[in-house]
């Protein structure tokens, strides 16, 4: 095995420089993803509890108004339509709920 020639400091500088160069252009692939996402959400929003009649488990949602990406309140309404007996956790966290230790603890309390 030969030695790695990368210099860690140099790599860090490259990354930090690139971090300041955020492009707001959407490529074709990203446009495809938006279409794909809309198609999925449209189908899900038309589902009902009847669609989920074979689901005997417990459905739990963590969502909230401060989520940066998803529409938390509307997501909860859709969730209630799908799972009338589902459990709802409203959170004020902005996103990446699963990376917060306190939420992780709650998740494992629910499923263990």
């Amino acid at each position: 095995m030969k030695h790695l020639t990368l210099n860690a400091d140099e790599q860090i500088r490259i990354i930090q420089r690139q971090q300041s160069q955020v492009s707001d252009h959407l490529s074709n692939s990203e446009s495809d993803w938006i279409l794909a996402a809309n198609a999925m959400m449209t189908r899900i929003q038309t589902q009902t509890s009847q669609t989920w009649r074979y689901f005997n488990g417990q459905a739990i949602i963590w969502a909230g108004p401060n989520d940066k990406i998803t529409d938390g309140p509307r997501s909860i309404k859709i969730f209630q339509n799908l799972f009338p007996k589902g459990k709802i956790h409203e959170t004020q966290l902005p996103h990446r709920i699963h990376t917060h230790p306190e939420v992780l603890g709650e998740i494992f309390k629910e499923i263990n």
Partner: peptide, 18 residues
């Protein structure tokens, strides 16, 4: 497949986007 799942935890699911 629906009956395969005991607990379904949805974390900020993509049901509706802002």
């Amino acid at each position: 497949y629906q009956s395969l799942i005991h607990h379904l935890v949805l974390s900020a699911p993509m049901l509706a986007l802002k």
